[in-house]
């Protein structure tokens, strides 16, 4: 169990004054994840909201060494830094522990950065990769990505008389990373901060490539009030749209509320509870497109069944 009182005594690694939107989930996730280690941390950041809004020249919100190179290569950038560190360590020029983190959005991870991520994972670099999954290209104006859920309206999958929002289901990147057989892969939500910080702590303590996929509600892109960010990030878990689980040395384990749902100790909410809070799904509640909701529900039920089986339920 994480003690917030203990955490509150540590120095913040992300300063105030960044220009992420009011109610953005990303700085919450950064603060929670970076609070999980006391070692020095070096971060790379793919192009995206987090990168742009935390480093508007001549300002930076980062109190740790931080590097931005391009959209597609957060993973190879941090891999290079880590390789450099290993050489300096071997030569005796550095003798302290340093942790390496790559931050990227879903665009920079699911789509544009997947080759760099896959390569760095395969080469076995010692780094933690965190994907802030806000399920579209929010920084450039809410274009659909391969993480955008089916039925979500974006500016490149606009719901209207022709299509019901995005027509395809998102790809399951957490599973793709688990298939790399790296030491640690996890899915988290900032609403369940205990779970997320514990997972980050575990990830920081393990050598080798680690991957965390974190759902990051976006008030602008998901069309919800700014104060609902945390509530929605919880609903995503409670409906099994975004189950909390980890894969440690190829062993699957459900965590937190998801574990309780699998064990029948907590109710699995219908997906409507999640969809109805967000404007990007509002067309699904009209006569024309109401048939989409059962399709989404049945996909979630089937994915949840598969995941439960992997976790031994």
């Amino acid at each position: 169990m994480v003690s917030l009182k203990e955490l509150s005594k540590k120095e913040e690694k992300l300063a105030s004054g960044h220009r992420l939107c009011a109610g953005c989930a990303e700085p919450i996730i950064v603060r929670q994840i970076l609070s999980a280690t006391d070692e020095p941390v070096i971060a790379s950041n793919a192009t995206g909201c987090l990168e742009v809004a935390t480093t508007i020249y001549p300002y930076t919100s980062w109190k740790i060494p931080w590097i931005h190179s391009a959209f597609e290569n957060a993973a190879s950038t941090i891999a290079g830094v880590e390789a450099c560190y290993q050489v300096l360590k071997r030569k005796g020029k550095i003798n302290r522990e340093i942790k390496f983190v790559a931050f990227a959005g879903d665009g920079g991870t699911y789509d544009i950065g997947i080759q760099a991520l896959s390569g760095a994972a395969e080469r076995g670099h010692d780094f933690l990769y965190v994907c802030f999954n806000n399920e579209a290209y929010m920084n450039t104006g809410i274009q659909r990505s391969s993480a955008t859920p089916m039925g979500a309206s974006t500016t490149t999958s606009p719901a209207g008389s022709v299509i019901p929002g995005k027509k395809e289901f998102p790809k399951d990147l957490t599973e793709i990373m688990a298939a790399h057989k790296i030491p640690y892969v996890a899915q988290g939500s900032p609403g369940f901060y205990n779970d997320l910080i514990a997972k980050a702590g575990k990830a920081f303590s393990i050598k080798g490539p680690k991957f965390m996929n974190v759902i990051a509600p976006c008030p602008r892109g998901w069309r919800h009030p700014t104060d609902k960010t945390i509530e929605i990030s919880k609903k995503a878990v409670e409906t099994c749209f975004w189950p909390l689980y980890e894969v440690e040395n190829n062993e699957y384990r459900l965590t937190g509320i998801s574990k309780l749902i699998a064990e029948g100790k907590k109710e699995k909410l219908p997906i409507v509870e999640y969809l109805k809070m967000q404007g990007r799904f509002k067309h699904l509640f009209t006569e024309k497109y109401k048939h989409i909701i059962p399709e989404i529900q049945s996909r979630i039920d089937s994915d949840w069944g598969i995941l439960k089986k992997k976790c031994g339920y």
Partner: peptide, 10 residues
Amino acid sequence: ILEPGNSVEY
């Protein structure tokens, strides 16, 4: 940017 966390000025 050589001043860590200087966004507090904003």
